[in-house]
Each structure stands twice: as C-alpha cells, then as structure tokens.
C-alpha cells in the first residue's frame, strides 16, 4: 500500500498544554507510524496561518482561564473556518479548556464571557471561585468501551440539542456534575474534559480519530490492530484507581 500522509493542526500548543496534552499528539503520531501513515504536525499559534483544506485533524488542549482569555480572540476569528472544517467531516479533538472554548460561549472565573468557536452547540459557565472545581479520575462509557482520564475544571458545560454527548459518566463529574454526561460530539468533532493524556491510554478512541481521518482522505475503513499491551495495562490501571477511589 502506498505510503499515506495525514496532517494534524495543533492549536496554541505553547499555551494550551496544561495537562500533558502533547501526549495526544505523540499518541496519534506513534499509532499512525505503526500503520505506515506519516503524520505531519503543524503548530498554530496566535496569528499563524492555517490551511483547513490540507488539514485532517485539529487538536486543542487545556489551559488556565488566563490562557483561554488570551487565545479567545484569535480562536473566535477562526470560528467560521473551524465550523466549515467540522461540516466537511474534518476530525477535531478538543480537550478541557480547549473543549470549553469550542462551545458557543464560556463565562469564566472572573464572570467575563468568552465567545467560543461554536464547533459544539454548548455553553460553559464557571460558577465562581468559591465553588468546588470538578477534580478527579473519570471513567465514562463510550461505544461499549470505557474512556479513562483525569478531569480538573471549574467551568460546567451544558449541551444544546444539536450536540450529542460523547460518553456517559460512571465515575467523576463529566460535563457539569449533574446530567451524567461527558464530552460532546458533532460529526467527526469530539470534545471532552478528560486529560491524562487521553489518547495514549485510550487506544481505541485514538484509532477512531485516525480511522475517521483516513476514511475522509483515502476512503479507508480499517486500521491494522496493534498489540497495545502497555496501553491496555495503563487503561486498566486508571480504571482500577478510579473505581477504588483513593487509598
């Protein structure tokens, strides 16, 4: 099979990388390489150009509220392009602070309202510095499997009708600690509060992103399975730590 190529655009990697989110890029790179797919990574900082037509996957990680305020104007200016990319079945993964910014709006810890990229039909609200943050290990049910990771967010996210949840919370808070939902999905765009980093120890979910991108670019449906022994052990360990709570 001819060598294939995918391009990943990482938004604001310098500042939106609070919780080891670069592990997500490393996971996609390693898993693509194992399938003879070259993954090229473009870092898009504030003011940088971006070519959506040449992009297969968009990633954004987490950041403090300060960082989110900082990138908000630049991100908002890209709303149209990101929504078009979503509607063209481009693959998106937005994590934690990036997830909040990919909704319609985020009222932050200072009460200011940040307009989001509108990729997800969702609003997020920070209930103020006196209210407990949502912190801890998370287990969520996703397509008959589990997603595991760690969440640490002040804002609470609420999905509107155009957006379906990514997963159902088994342990943890998820979107808002109330409705039992975690994350968001529209077409090939995924949002989640889970970091850990998320993709290294959720290999099926990582492969789903790759497979959707390969299908869109090359019409391929199948990925050669990998052994994933270390990945599955890390997944199981996180499950165990989450279900047992603190010892």
């Amino acid at each position: 099979m001819a060598r294939r190529r995918l391009r990943v655009a990482v938004l604001y990697p310098r500042v939106m990388n609070l919780y080891g989110d670069r592990g997500n890029v490393m996971a996609l790179q390693a898993r693509a390489a194992a399938r003879d797919v070259d993954l090229e990574v473009d870092s898009i900082e504030i003011g940088d150009g971006w070519a959506p037509d040449e992009t297969d996957i968009v990633l954004i990680g987490g950041g403090q509220d300060r960082e989110q305020r900082r990138v908000q104007a630049d991100l908002h200016a890209r709303s149209r392009a990101l929504q078009d990319f979503r509607d063209a079945d481009g693959v998106i993964l937005a994590v934690c602070g990036g997830y909040q910014l990919f909704g319609r709006s985020y009222r932050d810890n200072h009460g200011g309202v940040l307009r989001g990229a509108g990729v997800f039909d969702m609003v997020s609200i920070h209930p103020g510095p006196r209210i407990q943050r949502c912190v801890g290990n998370v287990v969520a049910l996703w397509e008959g499997d589990t997603l595991v990771g760690f969440e640490n967010h002040g804002g609470r996210s609420y999905l509107n009708e155009g957006t379906i949840p990514l997963a159902e919370v088994v342990v943890g808070f998820g979107n808002n600690g109330g409705d039992g939902l975690e994350g968001a999905r529209i077409r090939n765009a995924f949002g989640t509060y889970l970091h850990g980093a998320l993709l290294p120890k959720n290999p099926r979910f990582a492969d789903r992103l790759l497979q959707l991108a390969l299908q869109r670019r090359y019409g391929e449906n199948e990925l050669v399975p990998l052994s994933d022994a270390a990945e599955i052990r890390a997944h199981a360990e996180t499950l165990h730590r989450s279900l047992r709570g603190r010892r």
Binding site: N17, Y19, G20, D21, R22, G23, M26, V135, G136, N137, F150, N152, H195, G196, A197, P200, R241, R246
Partner: peptide, 15 residues
C-alpha cells in the same frame, strides 16, 4: 504514585 501529596493527576509525566 498518585497520592494526595503527589498530586492525584499524573498527566504531567507527558510533559
């Protein structure tokens, strides 16, 4: 370890 005094979040190992 991921005890309280370590930080329960171990995502920092990716940095």
């Amino acid at each position: 370890n991921d005890g309280l005094a370590d930080g329960r979040d171990i995502s920092w190992i990716w940095d």
